[in-house]
């Protein structure tokens, strides 16, 4: 693992002038990513190559990718390696990359996109957190006729999202909780801008998938589910909603980062709990997937 010394402490996009942010200049924008997943089959149509950007404004209690939260590279202690080879126990997470280099890294997957109707998905972290890099990368994809998907919390400026409308073929976003107070407690963010962006996206003709991570005791109450169903039905009747059962696969990652796991006692929803939630959502004119 190379140590990305040159980017330690870098302020990413935020340190630059606002004026250049919206331009479609040819500058090779840099971004911070922490993982590229190949043969990703849950991040949009077809077989996808998913780029995970580092840095996220949210701190969801159930987050399974805690390494995606901070925007700086960080050290993780690989639990498994510790036993045999202490020198190797530390691993850098996060590296800086230019938009054109990223394109070069994902392009080998082209044969799989072609046969499956897939492409590249930008995920995170929060892609909207690195707007210039994201936009530049999406432009490069457009030039190469690569299908693009954006997976986002939608916590961002609508003006920027609007600019992306022509560059993104497929949107995927979570609506974690409908009540602003509850959302704030669960994620640390105010959801009004999120719901506003979601409503605009839903009212457009953009292909998209809305999702909810179903976390017992957090957001699986009847009123939240009913509000969610009604919201989707109102803004796009027939919208697709995927219900993702909470899982605990991220627990080990917290250990490696030396952080406490925020939901130590929460268990994945039982089959009955899932059925109950799906039953509620099916009252609305939306298509529920699980």
């Amino acid at each position: 693992m190379l140590k990305p010394a040159s980017v330690l402490g870098a302020d990413l996009d935020t340190g630059r002038k606002r004026g250049t942010l919206m331009s479609s200049g040819t500058a090779d924008e840099k971004g911070m990513i922490y993982k590229i997943a190949r043969y990703a089959i849950h991040d949009g149509p077809g077989i996808r190559t998913t780029v995970f950007l580092k840095g996220c404004p949210a701190r969801c209690l159930w987050c399974c990718n805690p390494e995606s939260q901070r925007k700086e590279p960080e050290l993780a202690k690989k639990v498994e390696l510790c036993r045999t080879c202490p020198a190797d126990a530390l691993e850098w997470i996060g590296r800086e990359i230019t938009a054109s280099d990223l394109l070069r890294e994902v392009e080998p997957d082209r044969p799989f996109w072609r046969r499956s109707g897939g492409g590249v998905t930008l995920s995170g972290g929060e892609p909207l957190f690195q707007p210039r890099f994201v936009k530049r990368f999406l432009q490069l994809c457009r030039e190469k006729h690569i299908h693009t998907a954006l997976e986002s919390s939608l916590f961002g400026d609508w003006k920027f999202l609007e600019e992306l409308m022509d560059l993104v073929d497929f949107f995927q976003f979570d609506l974690k909780a409908m009540d602003p107070e509850e959302h704030l407690q669960l994620t640390g963010l105010d959801n009004r801008v999120i719901l506003d962006n979601a409503a605009r996206l839903l009212r457009s003709d953009k292909p998209l998938l809305a999702r909810i991570p179903l976390v017992p005791g957090c957001n699986d109450g009847e009123s939240n589910l009913r509000e969610l169903g009604a919201f989707l039905e109102r803004h796009r009747p027939g919208a697709h909603l995927e219900v993702l059962p909470y899982h605990r696969m991220g627990v080990g990652r917290y250990e490696e980062l030396g952080r406490p796991y925020p939901l130590p006692d929460t268990l994945p929803p039982t089959e009955e709990e899932m059925e109950r939630a799906l039953g509620i959502l099916k009252d609305y004119a939306i298509r529920v997937i699980n």
């Binding site: 997943a37 043969y39 991040d43 998913t50 969801c60 159930w62 979570d174 909470y246 899982h247 696969m249």
Partner: peptide, 10 residues
Amino acid sequence: VHGEKPSRTC
């Protein structure tokens, strides 16, 4: 074993 964990559920 080739497999793929759900990549992002939150």
